[in-house]
C-alpha cells in the first residue's frame, strides 16, 4: 500500500500465500522477458535506424540453433509453470476431513448460507479462523460464482448440481464476497461479506443466532413432511431402500451398473428417480422436481448424509 492506492489484495486464507507466490513468480518472469524483448526491439530500432553507422555485416534471416534453443526454452518454462499451477490447483479437490460444511445457495440476487447447526444468514458468511470450511454450492436459478478475493477462491454455483469450495481463513476480518459469474440485472449487487472470527467468537456468534434445529434435523422434518419416510423408513423399507448408510457407498442399480451414492446421485434420485433405480426395487417413486427448492434439497442432503457415519463420506 502506498498513498492509499491498492496494488495487491489482502491475504487472509491458507491458500492465498501459495497462489501469490506463483503469481509473483509469473510477474517477475513476465517483466524480465517483457523488458528484455522491449529492450531488444528498442535497442535494434535505435542502433539500426536507417543511415546509422552501425555495422551490418554478418546479417542472417534464419538460425536453426537459435530457433531450436528458444523453442525448447519456451517449452521448459511453460511446462514448469503448468506443473506449479496444477499442483496448487489439485489441493482444491481435497478439503481436510474435519472441515465444517456450510450449505451455500445463490439466487438472483443474494447469497444464503446455512451452518450445520441450522443457523441461516443472507449475504454474510461467518467462519472461524484456523478451521477448514467447505461451502457446498447450489443455485436456485442461473449460474452464480462464489468469489472471495482475499481467500483466492472462486467456484461457480451451477443450477442442477452441487459444487464445492473450501478454504481456511487465517486472519480475522471482513472480506468481500462477490458473485463473479454474470447473473442478470443486479449482478453487481450480489455482493456480501465473509466475516472471519476467532473460534471462540464464532462459537459465541452461533450461540447468539439461536439454537433451533440443525440443518440435518430440518432435513429430517422435511423428509417426513414430504412423505419420503413412508417408503424409506426402516420398518417400511419394502417398496424402497432404507437410506441409512447409503451416502458414500456404492449402489447396485437395476440396470446392473454400480454408482457411488454421492451428492449427485442423491440429488438426481430425488428429482429424477426413474433414471438410476436401485437393484431390487420397482421404479415407483414420483419425482420431486418442482416440489422442493434448492434450499430444501440442501436440507434433505444434509439429513441423508447424517445417516452415514462421517468417515464413510467420499
Amino acid at each position: 500500500m502506498s498513498f492509499g492506492i491498492p496494488f495487491a489484495p489482502e491475504q487472509a486464507s491458507s491458500l492465498a500465500p501459495g497462489v501469490d507466490h506463483l503469481f509473483y513468480a509469473l510477474l517477475a518472469f513476465t517483466f524480465a522477458l517483457g523488458i528484455f524483448l522491449s529492450a531488444l526491439v528498442i535497442g535494434y530500432s535505435v542502433k539500426y535506424r536507417a543511415g546509422s553507422p552501425a555495422d551490418r555485416s554478418g546479417e542472417r534471416s534464419r538460425s536453426a540453433p537459435l530457433e531450436i534453443a528458444w523453442t525448447t526454452a519456451t517449452l521448459v518454462v511453460a511446462f514448469a509453470i503448468f506443473a506449479w499451477g496444477a499442483v496448487l490447483f489439485m489441493g482444491r479437490e481435497h478439503p481436510p476431513a474435519d472441515a465444517i460444511e456450510i450449505a451455500g445457495l445463490g439466487k438472483q440476487w443474494m447469497w444464503q448460507f446455512r451452518h450445520p447447526g441450522g443457523q441461516r444468514e443472507i449475504d454474510e458468511l461467518h467462519v472461524p479462523v484456523g478451521r477448514a470450511v467447505v461451502v457446498s454450492l447450489a443455485s436456485q436459478d442461473v449460474i452464480h460464482s462464489f468469489f472471495v478475493p482475499a481467500f483466492r477462491v472462486k467456484q461457480d454455483a451451477v443450477p442442477g448440481r452441487t459444487t464445492h469450495v473450501w478454504f481456511t481463513a487465517t486472519e480475522p476480518g471482513r472480506f468481500h464476497l462477490f458473485c463473479a459469474e454474470y447473473c442478470g440485472t443486479e449482478h453487481s449487487g450480489m455482493v456480501g461479506w465473509v466475516v472471519a472470527m476467532q473460534p471462540e467468537d464464532y462459537a459465541a456468534w452461533l450461540e447468539r443466532q439461536g439454537s433451533g434445529d440443525t440443518l440435518a434435523q430440518q432435513g429430517e422434518k422435511l423428509f417426513r413432511a414430504l412423505g419420503c419416510s413412508g417408503c424409506h423408513e426402516n420398518s417400511t423399507a419394502v417398496r424402497a431402500p432404507d437410506l441409512h448408510g447409503v451416502y458414500g457407498r456404492p449402489v447396485a442399480l437395476a440396470n446392473s451398473q454400480t454408482v457411488m451414492a454421492d451428492e449427485r446421485y442423491l440429488r438426481d434420485s430425488i428429482l429424477q428417480p426413474a433414471r438410476e433405480v436401485a437393484a431390487g426395487y420397482e421404479p415407483v417413486m414420483p419425482s420431486f422436481d418442482g416440489l422442493v427448492d434448492e434450499g430444501e434439497l440442501q436440507m434433505l442432503l444434509s439429513y441423508l448424509k447424517s445417516l452415514s457415519p462421517k468417515e464413510a463420506s467420499p
Partner: peptide
C-alpha cells in the same frame, strides 16, 4: 511495433490465466 509490444504483454498475461491456481483467483475479473 505497437502491436509487438501490446501483443507480447497480452500474451504473457495468458501465462497467468492458464496457470490453474492463479486462474481460480483472476477468472471473471
Amino acid at each position: 511495433l505497437g502491436f509487438l509490444g501490446l501483443f507480447t504483454f497480452g500474451g504473457l498475461a495468458g501465462l497467468f490465466l492458464a496457470a490453474l491456481a492463479v486462474d481460480v483467483h483472476v477468472h471473471d475479473t
